[in-house]
């Protein structure tokens, strides 16, 4: 049973990560490869605060949200001067630098040794320690996260975002402050990653920089794309499928010597096939990914 709950919690973490990315990339059209870096900032904030300052979980979470927001602004404001393909590369560069700092600033983050023994959260006297407790926390966080996303995308603000994705010049000509919209949604997306960051840190109770690499960013993007960018349920479905699929493959019997590589080949192959046949993802609108 714990195994199933564990899978559900992982799915929850990725639902939040890819939904927050969806706001930035799916709705506004800024594909950010720096998402795992924000996720890492949130996770490290919670971990370092609870280990060094022994502050309660809620305080850590709020601080993590604020710090992620600040980082979002620091990254977002200059990057917005950069257009299209180059934005992807700029975000990529931030991702690499953030990882490098987490990995090499040993006196502060303990570097590659990681931070073990992160205490479990305590919410208003509710001590979260068992698997069902964590599942409940995950569900609460996911609901909050999805509600925020839903509220944003179904507001006038959200409609402007989509207009920017479709045609930035047109949005400008309507007198919209495009830069302001872009920065605010970028900061918002970064702030939302603090939720999964805090959850992951306290759930696994051990973090090291290897969980926040470029590969992780690419995985989050894949979830969003395969699920369907620009749709509320796209990332949810993507997370379910992409987290569960490799787990299902555990049951497929293969000789050990080739199983590992075969699984990777299968995974990469699935990505290629999906891009060839259904690039808009499982529930996406076809036009989001067309020129």
């Amino acid at each position: 049973m714990d195994y199933l709950i564990h899978i559900l919690i992982l799915i929850g973490i990725y639902v939040m990560l890819s939904s927050s990315l969806n706001l930035v990339a799916g709705y506004t059209g800024m594909l950010s490869i720096a998402h795992a870096a924000f996720y890492g900032v949130g996770a490290y904030t919670v971990a370092l605060m609870s280990l060094n300052l022994h502050t309660p979980f809620l305080v850590n979470l709020v601080c993590a949200i604020i710090i992620c927001g600040i980082f979002g602004a620091v990254v977002g404001i200059p990057s917005l001067r950069i257009k299209d393909d180059y934005f992807i590369i700029a975000a990529f560069a931030f991702q690499i630098i953030a990882f490098s700092v987490m990995n090499n600033w040993v006196s502060f983050t303990k570097g590659p040794m990681g931070l073990p023994g992160i205490p479990q959260p305590n919410l208003f006297g509710w001590k979260i320690s068992s698997y069902p407790d964590f599942l409940l926390l995950t569900v609460i966080m996911c609901v909050v996260c999805l509600l925020i996303c839903w509220r944003i995308t179904h507001s006038p603000y959200g409609r402007v975002l989509q207009a920017i994705r479709e045609d930035e010049t047109f949005a400008l000509s309507l007198g919209k402050n495009v830069a302001g919209y872009k920065i605010s949604v970028f900061v918002l997306g970064a702030m939302l990653t603090a939720l999964p960051g805090a959850l992951y840190t306290t759930y696994i109770s051990y973090i090291d920089p290897s969980s926040f690499t470029v590969d992780e960013s690419i995985f989050i993007i894949s979830i969003m794309i395969i699920g369907g960018a620009g749709r509320l349920w796209g990332p949810v479905l993507g997370a379910v499928v992409l987290v569960m699929l490799p787990e299902l493959l555990r049951f497929v019997g293969m000789p050990n010597s080739i199983a590992a590589n075969m699984r990777q080949i299968f995974y990469g192959g699935a990505l290629v096939v999906c891009m060839l046949w259904r690039p808009q993802g499982l529930v996406g609108k076809a036009d989001v990914l067309r020129k």
Binding site: M1, D2, Y3, L4, H6, I7, L10, I204, Y206, D208, S210, S211, P246, E247, R250, N256, A259, A260, R263, Q264
Partner: peptide, 21 residues
């Protein structure tokens, strides 16, 4: 029962959970 953790912490925990199941 060999499970691949793919040099990745999360995958390792999932694999371990699977074995615990």
């Amino acid at each position: 029962l060999v499970q691949d953790s793919q040099s990745d912490v999360k995958k390792g925990v999932s694999a371990f959970q699977y074995l615990l199941a």
